[in-house]
Design a protein around this nucleic acid. Structure first.
Ligand SMILES: [Mn+2]
Ligand SMILES: [Mn+2]
Ligand SMILES: [Mn+2]
Ligand SMILES: [Mn+2]
Lengths: 233, 233
DNA sequence: CAAAAAAGTTAAGTTAGCTTAACTTAGCGC
DNA sequence: GCGCTAAGTTAAGCTAACTTAACTTTTTTG
């Protein structure tokens, strides 16, 4: 066996499942204009401890995938961002594939994709992409990065939480929380739905909506935060 | 944290990827009438050391999945066999799915399935099974165990290495070695092919074949060992 | 601004899975 | 049966990923 000099960077054998999920989470935090993610948020996202997050961030830093100053939020390096975008591409293509070929509903694909994204080969991803005709949105309305890492930049969307009264089209629905997805699906809301945002009642945190067909509803603010809209006059 | 009594069996949280592959390998050794597998064979199969195999077998034994006396071959317990058959079912259904829906060729599916089998949910496997119409053979001719663990017992097959001269149908082709699969595919041999086995030349270890269409070929013995036949006249 | 709370780090310990090295056992060949 | 060799085990040590506990830094807040 060839002795390995301790100072030599790790052989970059491949990137672990945990590392892949971290990179994706760090990237996702800023996808819709949010601030760089904190250790606390990462710990909550993965149901683990702050100590474990520090440890994992240290390993990712050693691999040159993230940059991190103590007590500051975490950022991706160029290499880290490349890997992150590749994972997002896999995740969203897999979701699209499951809906199209296996009849998954758009509120159940996320968990399955969360596992499969770490197991599919590049070859398989490109075949899925070709079979689906190179889609540019996943079932939740999220843009699918191209194989070269470029992202189709979607029309500027506003969060329902920040939307002033008026007519909108739902362009994306965050797939983070399955319970919220089921709630929204129950309201008939999906990417492409047309809605009218009403005037907020100061005494309540929920947001009044009117649907195309005249139906009325009121969404709690956590569900509203999952909806992204573009104005439709 | 609740203290765990040392004698309590492990919580069977879930079964690791390494454990799943070991169970599958142990089961596969006896699928076509072979002897229970040895540690040496397991080490070769996974490209690891005998020491690591001993270690892994120890863990599997502690989990109640295999039974093992020192210096003896490894056997599955009832629980181990149940898990092994479930993995084989996943592997073969995934191979079938990749061929059918993504246009994989039967000589390239194995490696992809080797990874995906650890990532797909029960739900996804059952949907694949339904989509494919509950197939009972995979692309290599291997029987696909049913969801309840029962295996369709195929017509008794003989290995080409042991076949006396005569007419046969190829019923299965072992998918262990990709190089051999490519060689056989190059000869036009696949499950369902009809062949005539010629008389062996004592001076050579290769086996003479005649195809349906009159073509002649001669297979080296390692390739011949991958072919399983049933007599046809 | 100082104290309290929240966030982050460090330290120590665990397990699975791997390595190399040293040793033991089993199965012959003679 | 004796001794060689192949197979198997044991020992020691490593990394990634996790835990709890103790501590430090930053942020909030009265
Ligand atoms: Mn994931
Ligand atoms: Mn999605
Ligand atoms: Mn596998
Ligand atoms: Mn197969």
């Amino acid at each position: 066996m060839t002795a390995r000099t301790p100072s030599t960077p790790p052989p970059a054998e491949g990137i672990s499942r945990v590392a892949e999920d971290f990179l994706k989470a760090i990237w996702s935090a800023t996808e819709w204009g949010g601030a760089p993610i904190t250790g606390k948020a990462l710990a909550e996202r993965f149901g683990t401890t702050a100590a474990n997050v520090s440890d994992t961030i240290r390993r990712l830093t050693a691999q040159g995938l993230v940059s991190h100053e103590p007590y500051k939020p975490v950022r991706l390096t160029t290499a880290g961002e490349r890997h992150a975008v590749a994972m997002v591409r896999k995740h969203r293509l897999i979701e699209s594939f499951l809906v199209r070929t296996l009849g998954y509903s758009w509120e159940e694909v996320h968990d399955e994709a969360e596992n499969l994204e770490h197991a599919v080969s590049e070859t398989m991803i490109e075949r899925i992409d070709a079979l689906l005709g190179h889609p540019d949105r996943d079932p939740h309305g999220d843009p699918i990065p191209a194989a070269d890492g470029t992202s189709p930049h979607p029309e500027h969307a506003v969060n329902l939480t920040d939307a002033s009264p008026g007519s909108y089209e739902v362009t994306r629905i965050s797939d983070d929380d399955p319970a919220i997805l089921r709630l929204l699906a129950g309201h008939g809301l999906r990417p492409g739905s047309m809605i009218t945002v009403g005037t907020r009642d100061a005494s309540s945190s929920s947001i009044p909506l009117e649907y195309n067909d005249g139906g009325l509803a009121s969404l709690p603010s956590d569900a509203a935060a999952a909806l992204w809209l573009v104005g439709r006059g």
